[in-house]
């Protein structure tokens, strides 16, 4: 029997609804199927609902199909984080580990998503699909962190295939289609078109629907100045750019994960102050 045939494939699902009750956002877990789980939400001082997303399997195995849907009602605020890195285990055959997230943000809602790093192990095959729909005045801070593998084990770009899609729609129109397919056996990832001499990738999407282009240009300039101060050739590169409307995107490449994780929060601190006039809460973790 093949090792892959012995493993039970998981079809995990998590459906989270955030609604407003007495000026505070509260979570209702509409559905959860292992290995995805949420224990409870925690109310932050500003009324935000703070939620830890658990994957009790410890990672995503080949053949797993995990889906999460997140619905934010009008004027709700939610912050989500993972409890550990997302480990993508090796695939013995041709089965792909698959994870999808779909977030619907109603008018004037705000979603902050702070996951830990995704670590694709050697020989892994992974497809992650994210779709985010933003209604009028909805706000978003969404980060993704990607490692080249288990570097301590000498793994660097040893996975077989990685596909990461993040499609963001605002008012029903595509705002950003950020997709990548990485296949180290077919692509030379040290090519400067891809990673160059860097190994870790951070991507941040900051949006608030309805703000005019001038405000985004001003915020871009502010974040770009910060990006310039954090860019150190040979160690860490940052870039910031306005999207066609309603938001901006931040991209970092680094030789290590720590530079990216610590700096990512500072971008949101600057942006949240500019967009909402408040400071964000950093999930309690070791950065």
């Amino acid at each position: 029997m093949q090792p892959s045939a012995r493993l039970e494939r998981m079809h995990g699902h998590l459906a989270l609804d955030f609604t407003l009750k007495q000026q505070r956002t509260r979570l209702t877990v509409r559905e959860h199927r292992p290995p995805l789980q949420v224990v409870r939400d925690f109310g932050l001082a500003d009324g935000t609902s703070f939620v830890h997303l658990h994957n009790i399997a410890g990672g995503v195995l080949a053949g797993d199909q995990l889906t999460t849907t997140i619905n934010l009602a009008v004027a709700t605020k939610a912050q989500l984080t993972t409890t550990s890195s997302t480990r993508i285990y090796r695939s013995a055959g041709e089965q792909v580990a698959y994870q999808a997230m779909h977030a619907n943000l109603a008018e004037h809602s705000l979603l902050e998503y702070w996951p830990d790093t995704t670590i694709p192990f050697a020989e892994s095959m992974y497809h992650q699909q994210t779709r985010i729909d933003l209604a009028d005045a909805a706000g978003l801070c969404w980060w993704e962190f990607l490692a080249p593998g288990r570097e301590a084990y000498g793994e660097r770009f040893a996975y077989r295939q990685l596909r990461l899609d993040c499609d963001i729609y605002a008012l029903g129109r595509p705002l950003l289609l950020d997709r990548m397919r990485l296949q180290p056996s077919l692509q030379q990832l040290n090519n400067p078109l891809y990673f160059g001499n860097y190994s870790y990738l951070a991507t941040g999407y900051i949006c608030r629907v309805g703000l005019d282009a001038g405000q985004w240009k001003a915020l871009e300039a502010e974040l770009m100045a910060f990006a310039s101060s954090q860019t150190k050739l040979g160690r860490c590169l940052w870039g910031v750019s306005c999207l066609a409307a309603h938001g901006l995107m931040i991209r970092g490449l680094s030789t290590n994960s720590r530079d990216l994780l610590t700096t990512a929060f500072d971008y949101w601190r600057i942006a949240k102050q500019a967009l909402y006039g408040t400071s964000p809460n950093l999930p309690r973790k070791i950065y």
Partner: peptide, 18 residues
């Protein structure tokens, strides 16, 4: 199917104004 990946070039284009 479309998944064009040019993360290094995109980030370089973002830094170009600097």
């Amino acid at each position: 199917d479309l998944a064009p990946c040019s993360i290094g070039l995109d980030a370089a284009s973002m830094r170009h104004p600097l």
